[in-house]
């Protein structure tokens, strides 16, 4: 049940976390049982999930901006409708995820405020600009492709509301990657200018997309406990490799070149990639990506400009709620 009301602040995890309870909790996880909002859970499990789900939600919402940048310039009515529907889906996914995170006891307003004030992060990939129409193809093909790799295992995550939200998200996202690939294919088979546009988009998005899977396994902070709790089922490097192995043949089909001259296929068929520039990743994460400031400014503006609308709706609801009482008192 997705109920905020049930997650009052005197939740069970405020009690002493004795070893027995923790052991029982871990036994449930090990038996592949799902944890539901009102079940006892270790405070750290709650905290980890709240952080992860809310960041995931922020990413969906901020992710509307780079693609939304091209809705008004989409080059055909078919593309325009598909892109608007796709960006709308991202918003829907943000909503499903905020709702799942709220079951852990933090309100959506608090989570959104944490994002707007820079206390909570969103995926760094959205801090890169969409310069041409081909970027819309590249985002659908690569960014959504990488997101799907990350998200499919989350459908089996130990926390019920998160897993259920992810099932819905994955179902809906299946069209996103296809529409991106279709855009790339049309460009790759189009005029020389269009093909160059597609190649340039691949050149710019490739490395940031590989960084979406997170730091290499030996440097990842959260992996151990997340794996133990079955929030995470594959390591960053495993998923990254899986994505690359799936994507290389697709690039070959498009006739585009992956911007990694050192890439080779090993005996087992895996594509071995060159060293990722983690300095760039850290800089973007620290707020120094090309669009960090623009993205936050756009979300803050929407939030601030919309405040009077939300206040009006609340004021009207309050008047309505009070009206029958006022009449009864007369």
């Amino acid at each position: 049940m997705y109920t905020q009301a049930l997650n009052t602040s005197d939740g069970d995890d405020r009690h002493v976390e004795d070893a027995t309870r923790s052991a029982q909790f871990q036994a449930r996880i090990d038996a592949d049982e799902r944890i539901e909002p009102n079940d006892w859970m270790p405070a750290a499990y709650r905290k980890t999930l709240t952080r992860q789900i809310s960041q995931h939600a922020h990413s969906e919402i901020v992710g509307m901006l780079p693609e939304g940048n091209w809705i008004t310039r989409a080059p055909s009515l078919r593309r325009k409708a598909a892109l608007l529907a796709k960006v709308q889906d991202e918003c829907g996914h943000g909503l499903y995820l905020y709702a799942a995170a709220e079951t852990l006891g933090t309100s959506r307003e608090e989570m959104v405020d944490a994002m707007l004030t820079g206390k909570s992060r969103y995926s760094s990939i959205f801090n890169y600009p969409t310069l041409t129409w081909a970027d819309i193809g590249a985002i659908g093909w690569l960014v959504d492709g990488a997101a799907i790799m990350n998200q499919i295992p989350l459908c089996r995550c130990s926390y019920g509301p998160y897993a259920r939200a992810m099932i819905r998200v994955c179902k809906e996202e299946s069209f996103h990657q296809r529409q991106g690939f279709e855009i790339m294919l049309t460009l790759a088979r189009g005029t020389p200018e269009q093909k160059a546009m597609a190649q340039n988009a691949l050149d710019r998005w490739w490395w940031p997309v590989l960084m979406m899977f997170g730091p290499p396994d030996q440097a990842s902070q959260h992996s151990d406990t997340s794996t133990k709790w079955k929030i995470k089922r594959f390591s960053n490097d495993e998923l990254r490799q899986k994505f690359i192995d799936a994507t290389v043949p697709q690039a070959q089909f498009l006739g585009l070149t992956i911007p990694d001259p050192g890439m080779t296929q090993d005996a087992e068929g895996h594509w071995r990639y060159s060293e990722i520039d983690w300095t760039e990743f850290k800089q973007v994460l620290a707020g120094n990506g090309p669009c960090n400031r623009d993205r936050l400014a756009a979300r803050r503006k929407a939030h601030d400009d919309g405040a009077w609308v939300r206040e009006a709706a609340a004021a009207y609801a309050a008047k309505r709620a009070n009206r029958p009482v006022a009449q009864a008192a007369e």
Binding site: Q88, G92, L95, Y96, A99, E102, A313, Y316, A317, R320
Partner: peptide
Amino acid sequence: GSLHAADATLALQAARDIYTR
């Protein structure tokens, strides 16, 4: 799932727009 809305009418419309696309 769930959603936020100021009142029941808006909640019903939001449910339509979010969950029955």
